[in-house]
Simulated assay, not measured.
Amino acid sequence: MPLPAWLKRPWLHFLLLGTALFILQRMAFPDPLPVVGPLSEQRMAALQQQWLAATGAPASAEQLKQLVARELDRDMLFQHALSLDLHRHDAVVFQRLLRNMHFLQLAGDRSDQELYQQALEMRLHLGDEVVKRRMIQVLEQLLLSANPPAPLKEEELQAAFVERAEELRRPPRYSFEQLYFARQRDADIAQVITTITEQGLSAGEAREMSSPFLPGYVFKHQTPEQLARHFGAAFVMNFQQAGPQAGQWLGPIASVYGQHYLWVESIEPAREASLEEVRAELERDIAAQHQAEALANAVAQLRQHYELRL
C-alpha cells in the first residue's frame, strides 16, 4: 500500500528529524542542575563554634558532615523558595525588609511599597537570616501540603503505648503542708516540734512559728519534678528517703533553703498510665514524627533537582 503523499513531504521529514535530534540532545546533554554550596570557610567555622558552644566538645568528622548537610539543605530550600518568588508574597518578609530599610535610614518620605521594592533591588532579602528562616518555613508548609504525612493508625498508637510504657508511667504525687525554718533558726526547730507534739497542733495552727516561704505552705498533688522546682532536687531525695506516710508529721527535711517540717496529707503511689490518659500525648508525638518523615522525603525528592556540593 503506497504511503500518502503528505508523508513524503521533505519538510515533514526535516521536522521529525529535528524533533528526534532535539530529544536526543536533551537526553544526552540535560540542562545543568542549580548548584548549592560549598559552604565558605567562615560558615564552616561558625558551624563548628555553634556546636562547641552547645555541646562543650568539638564536632567529630561525622558530626561536622551532618551539620554541613543540614546547612546545605537549608540553602537549597531557601534557593528554591526564591525561585518560586515566595518572598514577594509574604507579609513577614515585607515587614522585615521595611524594618531593615528604616534601620539603614533609607526610608525618606517614600511609601512602604517603594521601600520594599528598593530593598529587593538592593538584595537585602538574600542576606537576612530572618527572611531565610521564614522562606524555609513557608516552603516546608508547601512541601507538606503536596506530600501530606501518613495518617495515624490505631495500631500504631497501641504499639507506641506498649513501647513507651515505662516512660509514660505516672509518677507519685504528694500532698502536704509545711513549716519552713530559715538556716539561722536551726536551733528553734526542736522546740517547735515539741510544742506541736505536746499541744497536738495542726500545720495551719503551727504556721506562725515558722519562717516565711515564698512558694507557699500548702502543696497538693505534687510530683517529684514539681517539688524539685519549689524546693530543689536535694529536698526531693531527702523527702523520699525519709519514707513519708499519710497522716503523719515528717522531718525536719533539709533543702537548699533550710529545714522543712511536713504534715503529709496524702500519697498517690506511682502507677502505670492508661491509654486514654496519654492518648493525646502519643497522638501529638506520632503526628510530629509523621510530619518530620514526610518533610524529609519531600526534601530528599527536591535534592534530585539540585547539585549539592559539600
Rank of each mutant, 00 (worst) to 15 (best):
Arg134Tyr: 00
Glu166Trp: 09
Gly243Arg: 10
Ile253Phe: 12
Thr19Tyr: 15
Asp128Gly: 01
Ala159Lys: 13
His230Asp: 15
Ser145Phe: 14
Ala28Thr: 15
Ala288Ser: 13
Glu307His: 09
Thr19His: 13
Asp285Arg: 03
Met209Gln: 10
Ala45Thr: 15
Ala57Trp: 15
Leu275Ser: 11
Ala280Tyr: 05
Ile253His: 06
Ala296Pro: 05
Asn238Lys: 08
Ala203Phe: 10
Gln42Val: 09
His290Arg: 12
Trp249Pro: 01
Glu307Gly: 02
Leu143Gly: 09
Glu283Thr: 03
Phe103Asp: 13
Ser210Cys: 11
Glu114Lys: 07
Val256Cys: 10
Glu156Val: 07
Ala53Val: 11
Trp11Pro: 08
Ile23Lys: 01
Gln291Pro: 14
Gln301Phe: 13
Pro4Val: 02
Ala233Lys: 11
Ala46Glu: 07
Gln49Ile: 03
Ile253Pro: 00
Glu225Gly: 11
Leu179Ala: 02
Asp186Tyr: 11
Phe213Gln: 08
Met27Leu: 14
Gln113Leu: 12
Ala242Glu: 08
Leu52Glu: 11
His80Gly: 02
Leu67Asn: 05
Glu277Asp: 06
Met1His: 12
Phe94Gln: 01
Gln304His: 15
Trp11Cys: 09
Ser60Tyr: 12
Leu3Phe: 14
Gly56Val: 05
Leu124Pro: 02
Thr55Tyr: 08
Ala20Tyr: 12
Gln95Met: 05
Pro30Cys: 14
Leu115Gly: 00
Leu295Ile: 00
Glu277Thr: 07
Pro4Met: 02
Arg96Phe: 01
Glu277Tyr: 07
Leu64Thr: 04
His230Cys: 08
Met209Thr: 05
Ala233Arg: 11
Leu97Gly: 00
Leu179Lys: 01
Met237Glu: 09
Leu64Ser: 05
Asp109Gln: 15
Leu67Met: 10
Phe14Cys: 15
Pro30Lys: 07
Gln141Tyr: 04
Thr223Cys: 02
Ser202His: 04
Asn147Val: 13
Glu198Gly: 00
Leu104Ser: 06
Met122His: 04
Glu276Thr: 13
Arg279Met: 14
Asp31Asn: 12
Gln141Arg: 11
Ala288Pro: 04
Asp75Ile: 01
Asp85Thr: 03
Arg207Trp: 14
Leu24Met: 12
Gly127Leu: 04
Ser210Met: 10
Phe239Glu: 00
Gln95Thr: 02
His87Asp: 00
Pro10Gly: 01
Pro224Asp: 01
Leu142Asp: 04
Ala20Pro: 03
Ala270Pro: 14
Leu77Cys: 05
Ala165Glu: 05
Gly247Glu: 08
Glu293Phe: 09
Ser202Trp: 07
Gly18Cys: 15
Asp112Gly: 04
Phe213Asn: 09
Gly56Tyr: 08
Leu104Tyr: 13
Arg43Lys: 11
Leu33Gln: 09
Leu302Gly: 05
Glu154Gly: 01
Ala59Tyr: 07
Ala46Arg: 04
Glu205Phe: 01
Arg229Val: 06
Thr197Lys: 14
Val92Pro: 00
Arg26Gln: 15
Ala280Pro: 14
Phe14Met: 13
Glu154Ser: 04
His290Tyr: 15
Gly258Ala: 04
Arg164Cys: 02
Ser83His: 05
His102Ile: 12
Ala5His: 12
Tyr217Ala: 02
